[in-house]
Amino acid sequence: MKEVSRRKVLALGTGLVAVAMLPLPALASNEKVMEDIRKFTGGAEAPESSIVKLEVPEIAENGNTVPLSVSVDSPMTADNYVKRVILLAEKNPNPGVATFHFSPRSGVAEASTRMRLATTQNVIAVAELSDGSFHMTKSQVKVTIGGCGG
């Protein structure tokens, strides 16, 4: 029986790595994300705050479909509610992922979706409250690429 070392297989296998859906060359620098946040806040500060929570996997099995939930602690009454939450992927070719628009009718400022991440990076959420304040949180997702199955 012919012997194949696993190291040899891995070395040969380098060329087979599946390429992520979003190509890597034009990765967004921190500049672009900062610009997107500035556009969202109109230049106002968006300090890190524990009222915004991001639920993302620590390791994404496939960058094509990364489930996420975002929630903002708020009574969601007519005079105290979350207006918008923007989601950004720091190192995607274009950082913008989605902007959620809530209303007092939402009951809770919570939303879930599935996103594409090109590489290991921080996912950032910035919330705008009805009082004009902005709050931010970020969470790192490790994106694995490679493996099998055509």
């Binding site: 094509n64 913008g96 959620f100 628009h101 879930s112 979706t113 599935r114």
Partner: peptide
């Protein structure tokens, strides 16, 4: 509820609110 959606949302978009 409204969402502005970018290409970074996965195929067969899922939204929960």
């Amino acid at each position: 509820f409204e969402v502005d959606i970018e290409p970074a949302i996965s195929a067969n978009p899922y939204l929960q609110f």
